[in-house]
Each structure stands twice: as structure tokens, then as C-alpha cells.
Measured scan of single mutants.
Amino acid sequence: SSGGSSILDRAVIEHNLLSASKLYNNITFEELGALLEIPAAKAEKIASQMITEGRMNGFIDQIDGIVHFETR
């Protein structure tokens, strides 16, 4: 797709992000992006959206560029 990722790509990214949230206590956007094979800024945006929508527990430290995952 030309304008970003398809629905399937997005679903795969979100699935992998949720998997990462179970493996890590926290991770930088750079590391997360590398893990998900997407730019760091996109990793931040998707993580932020999932947390806001209540689909993933955690919070974002924008100063240090880190996602902190919280286990249920």
C-alpha cells in the first residue's frame, strides 16, 4: 500500500507490540521500532494509541523516549 501500512500489517504490528509488552518491562522507541521493523516514531504512535484505547497497559515517557509496560 502506498499511504502507510495495510490493515494486516497494522494487525501484525499490534500483535508483536503486545508480545513485546509481555517480554519487556520497558523499551526505547528505537529498540521497539527495530523489533517491529518500523520507524521509531511510528512505534511510538501505535504504542500510544493502543495504551490510550486501553488495549495495552503502560505509559510513555516522551522525555526519555521509552515505553513502560505495566503487567495486568
Score class of each variant (00 low, 15 high):
Leu36Pro: 00
Met56Glu: 01
Ile51Gly: 00
Leu35Lys: 04
Gln62Leu: 14
Met50Asp: 00
Asp64Ala: 15
Ala40Asp: 03
Met56Asn: 00
Ala11Trp: 11
Arg10Gly: 07
Ser48Glu: 10
Glu70Gly: 12
Gly4His: 12
Ala43Pro: 00
Glu30Pro: 04
Phe59Ala: 06
Ala34Arg: 13
Gly65Gln: 09
Gly65Lys: 10
Gly58Leu: 02
Ile38Arg: 00
Glu53Ala: 08
Val67Glu: 01
His68Asp: 05
Asn57Leu: 10
Leu8Met: 13
Ile13Ala: 05
Ala11Cys: 12
Phe29Ser: 03
His68Thr: 04
Met56Gln: 01
Gly4Thr: 12
Arg10His: 11
Ala43Tyr: 00
Ile63Asp: 09
Asn57Gln: 11
Gln49Ile: 08
Arg72Asn: 14
His15Pro: 04
Phe59His: 11
Ser48His: 13
Asn25Met: 10
Ser1Gln: 11
Asn25Ala: 12
Ile51Asp: 01
Asn26Ala: 13
Val67Thr: 02
Glu37Gln: 15
Ile38Leu: 07
Ile63Cys: 09
Ile13Phe: 04
Asn25Gln: 14
His68Cys: 07
Asp64Val: 11
Asn25Val: 09
Ile60Lys: 00
Thr28Trp: 01
Val12Ser: 12
Gly33Ala: 10
Ile51Asn: 01
Gly33Ser: 07
Glu70Val: 09
Thr28Ser: 11
Leu18Pro: 02
Met56Arg: 00
Gln62Ala: 10
Ile60Gly: 01
Glu37Met: 13
Gln49Tyr: 04
Ala11Asp: 11
Ile66Val: 14
Asn26Glu: 14
Ala41Ser: 13
Ser19Gln: 15
His68Leu: 05
Glu31Asp: 10
Ser2Arg: 06
Glu31Trp: 06
Ala34Gly: 06
Lys22Gln: 10
Ser2Met: 08
Ala40Phe: 06
Asp64Arg: 15
Thr52Ala: 15
Leu17Gln: 02
Ala20His: 06
Gln49His: 06
Gly54Asn: 06
Ser48Leu: 12
Ser6Leu: 09
Met56Ala: 04
Leu32Asp: 00
Val12Trp: 14
Asp61Gly: 04
Ser21Phe: 03
Phe59Ile: 08
Asn25Asp: 13
Ala11Tyr: 09
Val12His: 10
Glu30Gly: 07
Ala11Gly: 08
Ala47Thr: 10
Ile66His: 07
Ser21Val: 10
Ala20Ile: 15
Gly54Tyr: 02
Phe29Trp: 07
Leu18Arg: 06
Glu14Asn: 03
Asp61Glu: 05
Asp9Thr: 05
Ile46His: 04
Gly3Leu: 11
Ala20Leu: 15
Ile63His: 09
Ser6Cys: 13
Ile51Glu: 01
Phe59Leu: 06
Arg72Ile: 10
Met56Cys: 03
Ile13Leu: 10
Arg10Asn: 10
His15Met: 15
Met56Lys: 01
Ile7Gly: 12
Lys22His: 09
Phe59Glu: 05
Ile7Thr: 10
Leu18Gln: 06
Ser19Cys: 15
Arg72Glu: 11
Thr28Ala: 04
Ala34Glu: 09
Asp9Arg: 03
Arg72Asp: 12
Gly54Glu: 05
Ile66Met: 11
Ser2Ile: 11
Ser19Ile: 15
Ile13Asp: 04
Gln62Ser: 12
Ile46Leu: 08
Ser21Tyr: 03
Ile7Ala: 13
His68Asn: 06
Gly33Val: 04
Gly33Asp: 00
Met56Asp: 01
Gly65His: 09
Ser1Ala: 13
Asp64Cys: 15
Glu44Ser: 12
Gly3Trp: 02
Ile27Tyr: 04
Glu31Pro: 00
Glu44Asp: 03
Ser2Lys: 09
Lys22Trp: 06
Ala20Asp: 02
Met50Phe: 04
Glu30Phe: 08
Thr28Gln: 02
Gly58Tyr: 01
Leu32Asn: 00
Ala43Ser: 03
Ser6Ile: 13
Ser2Trp: 00
Arg72Met: 12
Lys22Met: 10
Met56Gly: 01
Pro39Thr: 12
Ala47Met: 06
Lys45Val: 10
Asn25Thr: 14
Thr28Pro: 04
Lys42His: 15
Arg55Phe: 06
Val67Gly: 01
Glu14Lys: 03
Thr52Tyr: 08
Leu8Val: 13
Lys45Asp: 11
Ala34His: 09
Asn26Phe: 15
Thr71Ile: 08
His15Leu: 14
Gly54Pro: 00
Gly4Val: 12
Ile60Thr: 03
Phe69Arg: 02
Ile51Ser: 00
Arg55Lys: 10
Arg72Cys: 12
Glu53Trp: 02
Ile7Asn: 13
Phe29Glu: 00
Phe69Trp: 06
Ala34Val: 11
Phe29Val: 05
Ser2Val: 12
Ser19Pro: 02
Ile51Tyr: 01
Glu44Tyr: 10
Phe29Thr: 03
Arg10Ile: 14
Gly54Lys: 07
Ala20Arg: 03
Asn25Pro: 13
Thr52Gln: 14
Leu18Asn: 05
Ile60Pro: 00
Ser6Asn: 11
Ser21His: 03
His15Asn: 14
Ala40Thr: 07
Leu17Trp: 02
Gly4Glu: 14
Glu70Lys: 07
Gly65Ser: 06
Ser19Phe: 09
Ala40Val: 08
Phe69Gln: 02
Ser48Gln: 14
Ala43Phe: 03
Arg72Ser: 14
Leu23Ser: 08
Gly4Gln: 12
Arg72Leu: 13
Asp64Thr: 15
Gly54Cys: 06
Thr28Met: 03
Ile27Asn: 00
Leu23Val: 11
Ala41Ile: 09
Arg10Glu: 12
Lys22Leu: 13
Leu36Asp: 00
Tyr24Val: 07
Ser5Val: 11
Ile60Phe: 03
Ile38Cys: 05
Val67Lys: 02
Asn16Met: 14
Glu14Ala: 04
Val67Asn: 01
His15Glu: 14
Gln49Leu: 07
Ala47Pro: 00
Ser21Cys: 07
Leu23Asn: 09
Glu31Cys: 10
Ser5Lys: 12
Gln62Gly: 09
Glu30Gln: 09
Ala43Gln: 00
Arg10Ala: 08
Leu8Ile: 12
Val67Trp: 02
Leu17His: 02
Asp9Gln: 06
Ile63Met: 09
Phe69His: 02
Lys45Cys: 13
Asn57Arg: 13
Ala11Ile: 10
Asn16Lys: 15
Pro39Gly: 09
Gly33Phe: 02
Glu70Asn: 10
Leu35Gly: 00
Ala41Tyr: 11
Leu32Met: 04
Phe29Tyr: 04
Asp64His: 15
Ala34Asp: 08
Ile38His: 01
Lys42Arg: 14
Lys45Leu: 14
Ile27Glu: 00
Leu8Ser: 13
Thr52His: 11
Leu35Asp: 00
Leu32His: 00
Asn57Trp: 06
Phe29Pro: 01
Arg10Thr: 11
Leu8Asp: 13
Leu18Gly: 03
Ala41Trp: 15
Ser5Leu: 07
Arg55His: 05
Gln49Arg: 09
Glu44Gln: 14
Ile60Asn: 01
Asp64Tyr: 14
Ser19Lys: 15
Glu14Tyr: 05
Ser6Tyr: 03
Lys22Phe: 08
Ala41Gly: 08
Leu36Tyr: 03
Phe59Asp: 04
Ser5Trp: 00
Met50Gly: 01
Asn57Phe: 10
Ala47Leu: 11
Ser1Tyr: 00
Gly58Glu: 01
Ser48Asn: 09
Leu35Ile: 09
Lys45Trp: 10
Ala47Trp: 03
Ser21Glu: 05
Asp9Val: 05
Met50Gln: 00
Phe59Pro: 00
Ile66Arg: 15
Asn25Trp: 08
Val12Phe: 09
Thr28Arg: 04
Asn25Glu: 14
Ala34Ser: 08
Lys45Ser: 12
His68Gln: 05
Ile7Pro: 10
Asn16Phe: 12
Pro39Trp: 03
Ala11Asn: 08
Lys45Gln: 15
Gly65Trp: 03
His68Lys: 04
Ser1Leu: 06
Leu17Val: 06
Pro39Leu: 05
Asn16Gln: 12
Ser2Gln: 12
Arg10Cys: 10
His68Pro: 01
Ile51Trp: 02
Gly58Val: 03
Ser6Gly: 11
